[in-house]
Every structure is written in C-alpha cells, then in structure tokens.
Design a protein around this nucleic acid. Structure first.
Length: 846
RNA sequence: GGGCGUUUAGCUCAGUUGGUUAGAGCGCUGCCUUUACAUGGCAGAUGUCGGGGGUUCGAGUCCCUCAACGCCCACCA
C-alpha cells in the first residue's frame, strides 16, 4: 500500500497501470462462471488499417464504462477484441503498400518479392502476381498492422481481455464461417443462382444491397425515335443511357396511358441496330416521366430487371465484367446496318460508347435535339468510384426475407426479442428489413477472404456441373477449394474433364463478421465456453451499420440458434467535427487520438466521450477534455485531503449534516446503478459528477474545520468524508480508470476495478438541514465577495431571520456554519421571509 | 414520397412518470494567495425552452400542427 503523495499528479499515470492490469490479470475473463454470472460483449472488430481515430476512442469508451461497471457488480466480463482483417479493405491496402495486383490466372512464384515495402511512388504501375502470392502478402501485412494496432489500442485503457483476441481471417474464423455456410446450405437458407447482379466494374465483383449508396451524378436525357414496324410513324423515348440501345428488349408504358394503349402488342424497330421489339404495358411505367414510354434494356437499372423478369423478356446483355461493351457482335443484331453500328461501340467503356452512339444517332437523324444535362441519383458501391452496372452472374445468396414474406416477418419479430439502447434505434432495423428487395448476396469475386467450401464436378467437356456442388464435410474445415481436393478426387484431376474445380469466389466480409458472437465464443470448437457466453449480453456498434452488421448477425443467429445473438444492442453515435460534419477518413477531417491522450490524459478524453448520451452524435470538443482533466485533478486533490487525515478509530454517532450528506450520496449510488443497468453511462457520470462538485465545494468546506480539530463530531466528519470519497472512487472508476486506481492505491489493496460496486448505505438524513445551512453560507460568501474580502475574513455578526422550519433545520448546521463562515456571532430569529444580515469585521488598516 | 432523430444561455449540452423562481460546464465580468487543489476558490450577468394551437389548477416536459437541420430508406427510363 502506497501512502498519500505530497504533490499528486496526473502526469504519466497510464503506462504503469496498463502494465500492472495486464500482469495482475485484472480484466481476465473467469470462464468457470456460469452463464448467469457472466456479462458478455460482442465487441466490434475494427478494420485493421494501421490507424485509429477519435471516433474509435469515443464508442469503445462507452462500452468500456459498461464493462467496468458490470465487472464491479461481480460479473465475470467476457470482453474480447477482434481485428477485421479479411476482405476488400485489406486487398486495397496490400495493393497500395506493395505495388501489386492479383491476377488469378498466374502461377504461384515461390521466390517472389514485392517491388516495394510501404512507399510506392505515385503512378507506379502495379505488378501482377498470382492469387497465392497475393494472399501471402495480405497475411504478411495484416500481421504487421495488427501488431501496431494492438499497441495503440492498449493505450486507450480499455478493460478488454487481450487473451481473447481474434481475427476474422484466422483458421478458426474461416472454420466457423464455412461451417455456418454449410449449415445454411443444408437447411435451404443459402442457395446459388445465376441472375442479374449489381456489379462493380473496377473491383469486378458483385455487391450486396446493403453496400450500395446513391450519389448525385451528372447525366443527360437523350430523346430517341423508334420506328413502328407497321409504318405508323415513330415512338419517342427519353433515356439517360443511349449506349444500351443495343441491349433493348422492349418498350413499356403504363396500362392506363391512353397515348400508348393503341400501341400495346405492336412492335417497333430500334434505331441503328434495327432489332424488332414489342411495346408492352406495365404498372411501374410512369406516364409523368420523360415521354411516358421507356425502353427496357438488359440491364440499365433495377426497374429494367423487374420488367425483364415480370414480362418474361429475353436477356440481351452487352456489358461485360470489365464494364466494356462486349467485343463480339450479338446474335440478335443481324442487319448490315445493325452490325456496323455495333462494331462502332464494341470494346468501348460505357462513356466512350455513349459518346459514339449519340454521334451515330445524330447522323442518322434518330436523335431529336441535343442531350439535356441533368443530375440524378445513381447507384454506386460504397467503396467504388464508378456507377454499378447490372451483370448476369452466378452468385451465392442467403435468404434474408427480401424475397419471402414469412422469413421477413420472423426476422422483423426478432427486433422485439431484444432491447435497444436507445429504443428508437429499432426503427432503423424494422425499416431496413421491411424494405429489402432481394436476398443477401454473399459471394465476391475477390481473393482475400473466406473461400466457399465447395467444388464442382466437371463434365466430359470440362464444364462445371453447378447444380450438384461437391461440399466439404464439417470435420475437414477449414478448406481452401483452390488448393484442396474434394472427397473422391485427387489433386491432379483439378481442371480436367470429368475432374473438378474449386468454387472461385470468396465470401464477403459481412458473411464472416456476421458470426462474431460465434467466433469470439468459439462456437463448436469449445462448447463449454460457448454456453457460458452466448447469447451475448450486448452488441455495441455504430447506428450506421444496423443494416449490415447488426442485421446480418441477426440472420445467422436466427437460423443457427433460433434466438437473437444478444440481449441488448447499444448504438453509439458519430463524432462530428466543429462544422457538424461526420468525422471520416474520406472527408479528411479525422482527429487522431494519441496527441489528445498525451495532452489531456486518457481519463480526460474518456470523460469527454462519456458525456455523450447513448446513440447521440457528438461534436468533437476539446473543451470537454479540459473539464475532464480538471475533474480528474480535483479528484486527486480531494482524495489527498480526505485520506491525509487520520483514519477514525472509534465510533461516534453521525451528525445530522454528515448523515444528510451520506443520504444524498445514497441517492446518487441508486441513480448511477439504475442508469448503468440501462446502459446509460452518461447519466451515471452526470449524477456522480454533480454530486462530487457539490461535495468538494460545499460539504468539504463546511466540515473541514470540524474534521481538522479534535472536537465533538470530528470522528463523524472524518468517517463520513472517508466513506464518501471511497464511494466516489468506485462511482468514477468506470469513467476515470487511471485516476481512480492511482488514488485507490494510496489506501486500499488491489485495483479499484476489482472492487465491488457501491450499494446505498441506508443513511437516514434530513435534506433540509443541508439546504438551510448552505443557503446561509452562500449569503455569507456573497457578502464577503461584495465586501472584497477573503472568504476567511471574520464576520462580526450574522443575523438570520427566517420562518420557523428554516431555523429548526439550520440548528444542526450551526456549529459547522460558524466555523466555515468565520462567524463571531450567529443569531437566528423567526420571521415570515428569509433575511440574512452579515456584518463583516473591519478590514485591518494597512 | 416514407421513417427516425434534433431544435433549451454566445458555445457544448443536462433537464427520467407535468409541479415553486429553467440548470451545468466553457466563455465573459468582478473579487479572493484560503494550511486538498491557482490545473484553485467565491460571486455576478446572460434564456419570448424553434413557431403556432390544444389538454391541465399548472407544460421545456403530454397531444396536434408547421418550420429548420441531420440521418436512414424509397424513387432512378
């Protein structure tokens, strides 16, 4: 046990405590505890990018305060950390870091060394390497990044149990992910389908609905004339995508549109390409839009897909996986003019094709007027730079209710099986699930991720038989179908007729991170652990990823376990910069937390984070960190004051003043406990903090003299001060873990973070005693301020006129009041109104 | 177009079942070296609680309505 220092300081208190907590195992999960005595947290695994921003500090602190509270109530806290290193983010970082790109057609080169190691000059062309080489580099870089990341994260003082660390690309995570997929497949919850898919032409991968976003993009309306086959003149449409004219399969107008009703069932010939297409009716056609009649192409947008499906139209795709117009002349274009026109656009990207096609239409006179520029919302992959195209591909899906009312209802009902903090966040879930328009697309045509544990037998011509996939068995997981062979085949049959091929795709990151409760809880690998932590008590996360992470985790747990994966979801808000914009890497307004931790101390930054109400977006405010610093400093000094006094050895009845203070503190303990149980750390802090300032400024000042001297009530004062400060250390411990543990060391054994959360002492006090005493004290102070004398200055006479009840209440505070106010005389008389008359002693003559 | 949230002092924000005169911190002004703390203390000024209507003995708080801002979703010819 250390003693109280002469000059306590907040400087450099963090590092020794971080070391001590680790060596003492202060935050170690005790897995011998039964489920009822465990508090488990499904920690968000941050993407390992080698940097940490103040938003992380913000939301992780919220969870940490709750974890610390739960631990102090006696729960064994399961608080793991994970790194999300699987997926596209890592691939991009590897490309930029080593100056390479993956080309799966290349063979493995065992002696390959990357051209760069971190500093790739701008504009350097990337070196193409094989998939195994690329995956090796991904593993290598994630290991480097994770070592850096861990050291930075430890600095935050989070009470995570680092021995539970997991990564989403580790073999055990791949095993969990593949196992869950195989079970989804076996139960019919996963399936494969060849269908039009939203496609990013740069990443060359399919993209899920949840990962798309709209961006206002410049475009232009082009008015184009189609010729009626019956010679009755032209039908004019407006289109923003004239380059898709060659992919036109029909025209469509609203069934009630009188202008076009006579044309339904007739045909027109497309301009330039001279393909005959029907004019059809469909309720989704909007008479108000453009000319009221649209061309249907395969595929310009999602409405085209709907029309194509519902009107049973042929597929005439002309855009390839690279976003370019297919090179070969399509079978449906057969006239000389059509073939010549197609040759003009073949191989071009959509922009170039559009430009050329407009020229051709203008030459032929089939375009009316000039293009009319507009801005319109266009779908993008959230990480992409060019608009998404719709390409028909074979993909894996997990049913999520997007095409099935019964599943949708079941998943909607799940949001009622858990508690949301704050409650209104459940609307975002309900809103999203209610608006789904397709199943969850989980396959990605990428390289660094969890492979599908699936192979395909090849027929005599060497073509894959997709409808009878060869599945891995659970016992063999994890598998990599690009290097492992399926049961019944040998490695040399790969790619041969009557042999096999591996499924070339990997799962999207969300398909694996949707299993974080299972991964962290070591589902099936350690059933004893899993049953002690699952379903988890809480999922903390940002409100912006309810539609992705929260929902996808719900889907997996709903299918596999028939329950929500957690009892509570705690949603945290965003950090806004002083201009109230979201802080994000892409905007470039991110603040790094390390300099802040240096300047104000970790506790002060945690204080700022803890002031934000759950779910609320919060402005970045260094002012609040200064306040936090001040608070921590005050706690240090108040503790020094109280703990420097001799520990009371005998019992003495508590004075009315002291009992009333303790009763107030009891109320604070009750409030803070209730708030924490509801995940409202901000309220717990606010109640504790406001009590603490009152305690320092008023109560301590009032009883200071009595505590110093050996008079009647001094034991009561010392004992009360000591009990109260100890309770305050416990109440502040979740927020100011460094300051409180520093102080705790002065007089207690062990860590405050292993101590028991306070309970109300049952003190019985009369609050009006405090009110009356401080009302008079405050007036005495004002008189001294107005008289421009020190607060120590003697008061010759203090006359209090007040109603009877007030005087009665004041009675118990009189001795303290006289000492604290340096009153020579205190006289009370009864009067209808409160009046305090203060006569200051004469100022000494200089 | 639908959903959700926000709007309280110059700034950042509390205000929990409706209840005296609406609060805190920062900032601002003045004073005080006081033996826990000058990284301090004491005191002071500052508000038509976004607008309008309603319920009530009583509304920042409940209901209706409008507005501004933000987020999510839908629309994308």
């Amino acid at each position: 046990m250390a003693t109280v220092p002469e000059k306590p300081t907040l400087d450099n208190i963090e590092a020794p405590l971080i070391t001590r907590w680790e060596s003492d195992g202060t935050y170690r999960f005790d897995r011998s505890q039964v489920r009822a005595n465990v508090f488990s947290i499904d920690t968000p695994p941050p993407t390992v990018s080698g940097s940490l921003h103040v938003g992380h500090m913000f939301s992780y602190t919220h969870t940490d305060t709750v974890a610390r509270y739960q631990r102090m109530t006696g729960k064994s806290v399961f608080y793991p950390m994970g790194w999300d290193d699987n997926g596209l983010a890592t691939e991009r970082r590897v490309q930029n870091y080593f100056g390479v790109r993956c080309d799966p057609s290349l063979p493995y080169d065992a002696s390959f060394t990357p051209p760069f190691d971190g500093d790739v000059p701008k504009g350097t062309p990337q070196v193409s390497i094989s998939r195994p080489n690329f995956v090796e580099l991904c593993s290598r870089l994630t290991h480097i990044d994770e070592a850096v990341f861990e050291s930075v994260w430890r600095r935050l003082g989070l009470s995570v149990d680092w021995s539970l660390l997991y990564t989403t690309i580790a073999p055990s995570s791949i095993r969990a992910s593949q196992r869950a997929f195989l079970r989804n497949l076996a139960r019919g919850e996963a399936y494969q389908q060849e269908a039009p898919t939203m496609w990013d032409v740069d990443f060359r991968t399919a993209v899920a609905q949840a990962e798309m976003e709209d961006r206002e993009t410049p475009g232009a309306y082009h008015q184009v004339a189609f010729h009626r086959v019956d010679g009755g003149g032209d039908v004019v449409i407006d289109t923003t995508r004239p380059e898709l004219l060659a992919a036109c399969v029909a025209m469509v107008a609203h069934p009630d549109d009188a202008r076009y009703q006579p044309l339904f069932g007739t045909t027109v010939r497309t301009p330039l390409f001279e393909v005959e297409v029907p004019i059809l009716a469909h309720h989704l056609a909007d008479p108000e839009k453009g000319t009221g009649i649209a061309m249907i192409c395969t595929f310009g947008d999602t409405t085209d897909v709907t029309w194509w499906r519902e009107l049973n139209l042929p597929a005439r795709p002309i855009i390839g996986w690279d976003g370019r117009i297919l090179a070969d002349n399509p079978s449906w274009i057969s006239t000389g003019g059509g073939v010549a026109a197609y040759a003009e656009i073949a191989g071009k990207n959509t922009k170039q094709a559009q430009k050329r096609l407009v020229e051709l239409l203008q030459e032929s006179g089939e375009m009316l007027g000039d293009p009319r520029p507009i801005k319109h919302p266009v779908k993008y992959y959230e990480k992409g730079d060019r608009p998404l195209e719709i390409v028909t591909t074979r993909q894996w899906y997990i049913r999520n209710g997007g095409r099935d009312a019964e599943r949708r209802e079941a998943l909607l009902a799940r949001s009622g099986d858990m508690t949301w903090h704050p409650d209104y966040m459940r609307h975002r879930y309900d809103n999203w699930v209610g608006g789904l328009n397709g199943d969850w697309l989980i396959s990605r045509q990428r390289f660094f991720g969890v492979p599908f544990p699936v192979w395909y037998a090849l027929d005599a011509d060497g073509l894959p038989i997709h409808d009878k996939p060869l599945l891995a068995t659970e016992a063999d997981l994890p598998v990599d179908p690009s290097s492992d062979a399926p049961a019944g085949y040998t490695a040399d049959q790969r790619g041969k007729p009557n042999g096999f091929m591996g499924d070339p795709d990997v799962m999207d990151t969300w398909a694996t991170s949707s299993l974080t409760p299972q991964i962290a809880g070591r589902w099936e690998d350690d059933p004893d652990l899993f049953e002690r932590v699952f379903p988890m008590d809480v999922r903390p996360q940002g409100h912006d990823i309810i539609r992705t992470w929260l929902f996808s985790t719900m889907v997996r747990s709903h299918y596999e376990h028939g329950t929500p994966p957690w009892k509570n979801a705690a949603l945290s808000g965003w950090i806004l910069d002083p201009d109230r914009k979201k802080m994000s890497k892409s905007i470039g307004n991110v603040v790094t937390p390390l300099p802040l931790l240096e300047q104000y101390g970790t506790d002060a930054v945690r204080y700022w984070a803890s002031c934000a109400r759950p779910g609320t977006d919060t402005t970045f405010d260094e002012g609040q960190m200064k306040v936090g610093r001040k608070l921590a400093n005050k706690l240090l000094n108040a503790s020094k004051f109280v703990l420097s006094m001799p520990e009371p050895t005998n019992d003495e009845a508590m004075t009315a003043i002291d009992a009333a203070m303790m009763a107030r503190l009891d109320a604070v303990v009750a409030d803070a406990t209730e708030a924490f149980d509801a995940f409202d750390y901000a309220r717990a802090l606010e109640r504790t903090e406001s009590f603490f300032w009152w305690f320092c400024d008023d109560y301590v000042e009032l009883v200071k003299t009595r505590a110093y001297q050996d008079v009647a009530g001094s034991t009561s004062a010392r004992a009360s001060l000591r009990k109260a400060i100890r309770t305050l250390h416990l109440l502040f411990a979740p927020f100011l873990p460094f300051t409180t543990d520093t102080v705790w060391e002065w007089y207690e054994k062990g860590s405050v973070h292993a101590a028991a959360w306070p309970k109300p002492t049952g003190a019985v006090g009369n609050d009006s005693v405090l009110d009356a005493t401080f009302e008079v004290l405050s007036r005495v102070r004002r008189a001294k301020t107005e008289g421009q004398v020190s607060q120590r200055h003697a008061v010759e006479k203090c006359l209090v006129q007040a109603p009877e009840a007030f005087i009665a209440a004041l009675e118990a505070g009189k001795p303290d009041l006289i000492a604290a106010g340096s009153l020579d005389f205190l006289i009370t008389t009864e009067a209808p109104e409160l009046l305090v008359d203060v006569t200051l002693a004469p100022k000494p003559v200089a």
